[in-house]
Design a protein around this nucleic acid. Structure first.
Lengths: 223, 223
DNA sequence: GCTTGTGAAGAGATTCACAGCA
DNA sequence: TGCTGTGAATCTCTTCACAAGC
């Protein structure tokens, strides 16, 4: 039914589609049936020309002089992102963050059900957390096969991250979201996204330092 | 002592400096006193020309034919990032994620001590979590002033995020790290970084869908 | 020899500006 | 008239390739 064009969608555009989708869902809940690129740009916090160009990669779905039909656009973006699909995830590492994610209910609703968790702690293996069974990492091949796991979430300490990734890849997982503060090496074709909270804070710190230099005396000497 | 040049450092470079720093710290702990751009590139998972260009923004700190002195480079990057400074943070919203971050010990070590937390739940206000006092969000002005809070971390639900950001900005916080799935509007000069786990998963889902299309029959029709 | 530092080329993303159409 | 869709211009980032220097 919905035909996606065959030009590739730029990565930067893909990263914004979820934001547009979220904005459109909010919009749909609050009334209007159409929205202009300017309106959507405001909701999504981006430039309006960017919205038009991004959406044009999905095909010509707007009406000149009118705008985009909200419901129609929701279907188009959902289809492009594949959110109609379900991609089971496995959480690797049940420290503070891993437990928080395991207890998070929002993922299942959005098509990313938590199929299982793994941890090396013998006290945790065999238990369930929020209905999620905890296994030993060495059982990842069976866990992945049984639950059709598509995505691995790494919440182990940095030291164990690479080893866990290797196990995931070996088990057939092609997509990884890592929170470990470590560089991960993967074979060609494996999709890895890294979210490092310390890095994020350090980037903020960089800009803060420009605003509030440590000691006004020993800064800004020109070479 | 350490003189940073006065050409602006590109944002993309700033985002990689923490990765270099982490790699160098690991390297320093394991032996070698010098490292080449190729070696550091491998550790950081990037192209070696990029390493050289990035580091050159900090000034000429390498030695041709030899490489970079590991300890010296650690000092240079630390200085550029301002990690010698301490930037107290306040955690806003003590749901699963907020609690996990409050219990995370790694931030304090890296110069981002958790000064306080806020939540609207009356049962939580007045308690302490991992030694961190919990206040009502309306007390942010006093909390920020008292603890010299520099960074606000938003771990509220999406609905309360904008309101919390407004309170933080009003209280004088200039840097915000948000985990709320929401677009945040801030005045000019406020630095906001958004980490949205659902968005990250949806981006992975997009690529997965290309690998494993839902039904091979109704895909790829050429216009 | 080997490695840095950097101009220049290349690739990608953003923004402009307007033709084309409802 | 108003808004989309898009070529062209611009900006940013990446990568190449090599001169300069240890």
């Amino acid at each position: 039914m919905v035909v996606t064009g065959n030009e590739p969608i730029p990565e930067a555009t893909v990263a914004r589609l979820p934001v547009y989708l979220r904005s459109l869902l909010e919009l749909a809940a609050s009334g209007p049936t159409t929205v202009s690129s300017v309106g959507l740009a405001e909701l999504a916090g981006v430039n309006d020309a960017k919205v038009r160009k991004d959406l044009s990669y999905l095909g010509p779905h707007g009406t000149r002089g009118v705008g985009y039909n909200v419901d129609h656009l929701i279907v188009e973006i959902s289809c492009a992102l594949g959110v109609t699909n379900t991609w089971p995830v496995v959480i690797c590492g049940l420290g503070n963050l891993g437990l928080a994610l395991a207890n998070h209910t929002g993922f299942t609703d959005r098509g990313f059900p938590i199929a299982a968790a793994v941890d090396t702690d013998p006290d945790k293996i065999g238990t369930t957390i929020n209905g999620v069974a905890v296994h030993h990492p060495e059982h990842l091949p069976e866990v992945v096969a049984e639950h059709q796991v598509a995505i691995g979430i790494i919440t182990t300490p940095a030291e164990g991250a690479q080893q866990t990734v290797d196990l995931l890849v070996e088990a057939g997982v092609r997509s990884i979201l890592s929170f470990a503060p470590a560089v991960l090496v993967v074979p060609e074709g494996i999709d890895v996204r890294c979210v490092d909270l310390s890095t994020e804070l350090q980037i903020l710190g960089f800009h803060l330092q420009r605003l509030f230099p440590p000691h006004s005396g020993e800064v800004a000497e020109i070479s």
